[in-house]
Amino acid sequence: MSTLPREEYIEQEYFFRVYRERLEQNTPSQDILKTVHEEILATTRLPMAVDFMRAEILHAGKISDAMARLPHYFTAFQTFVVARAEDEVSKFEQLTALEILEREAKYRAGEASRRGLFVYQFECVTRNRLGFADGLRAIAADPLYDERWSRWIRSLHNQLGVAELSELVYRASENFRTRRKSQQTAAQKNDDQNTGDEPEALFGEQDGRIAKANIGRDPLYFFSALQRQLNYPQVPLSKKLIDERLSPFLEARLSKIEQRLKIAEMEVKGGIDLTRFYKKDGSDTPPKFSDNAGLPD
Rank of each mutant, 00 (worst) to 15 (best):
E56Y: 09
F223N: 02
P219W: 03
I63N: 01
F52M: 09
W149E: 05
P47G: 09
K106S: 10
Q206H: 09
T285N: 13
T3I: 12
L58F: 10
C124N: 05
A138R: 03
V82Y: 00
F52I: 06
K262M: 04
G294L: 03
G110K: 03
E174I: 11
D297P: 11
D297R: 14
L230G: 09
Q259P: 04
R217D: 02
L156Y: 03
A172H: 14
Q30N: 08
Q234V: 15
G208Y: 06
G196Y: 02
R217T: 06
P233T: 05
D218L: 09
A172D: 07
E99Q: 08
E8K: 08
Q25N: 08
D297M: 07
A109S: 11
I100M: 03
R228Y: 07
T43R: 13
Y278R: 15
K240S: 08
Q188W: 14
S64C: 03
G282E: 01
S182D: 10
A105S: 12
T185M: 02
S238W: 00
G294K: 02
K256S: 14
E205H: 15
L202H: 13
I215D: 02
E265T: 10
A141L: 10
E147A: 15
L117T: 14
G131C: 02
L46R: 11
S90A: 00
D146F: 08
F176E: 14
E205F: 15
E147M: 15
T96A: 00
L23G: 05
R253I: 13
L274D: 02
A252N: 13
R179I: 13
V169A: 10
I257C: 09
L130A: 01
K262D: 04
E251T: 12
A213D: 09
Y221K: 11
L41C: 11
E251G: 07
K181C: 13
V162R: 13
Q183N: 06
L130K: 01
Q30V: 10
M53K: 08
A213V: 04
Q229M: 10
P28M: 00
H72E: 10
P286G: 06
R171K: 13
V268T: 12
G282F: 07
E205T: 15
R20Y: 01
T178N: 02
E267F: 11
L70V: 08
L58H: 13
A68Y: 02
P47F: 06
V235I: 05
E93C: 00
F77V: 08
R137F: 15
L250R: 13
Y145K: 12
R22V: 02
G208L: 03
L246D: 12
I215V: 07
L33C: 12
P248N: 10
L254M: 07
G282T: 09
K240C: 02
M48P: 05
I263M: 04
R245K: 13
L261P: 05
Y145M: 11
V81K: 01
A186M: 11
S283K: 06
I57E: 00
G208I: 05
V119R: 04
T75K: 06
H59N: 08
I257K: 12
K269G: 01
L220A: 15
Y107G: 12
A66C: 12
I32S: 01
D273I: 07
F80P: 03
F74M: 05
L220P: 05
Q229I: 11
Q234N: 08
L156S: 05
R84C: 00
N231C: 04
G282R: 07
E164G: 14
E24A: 14
E93W: 00
L46H: 14
E88M: 00
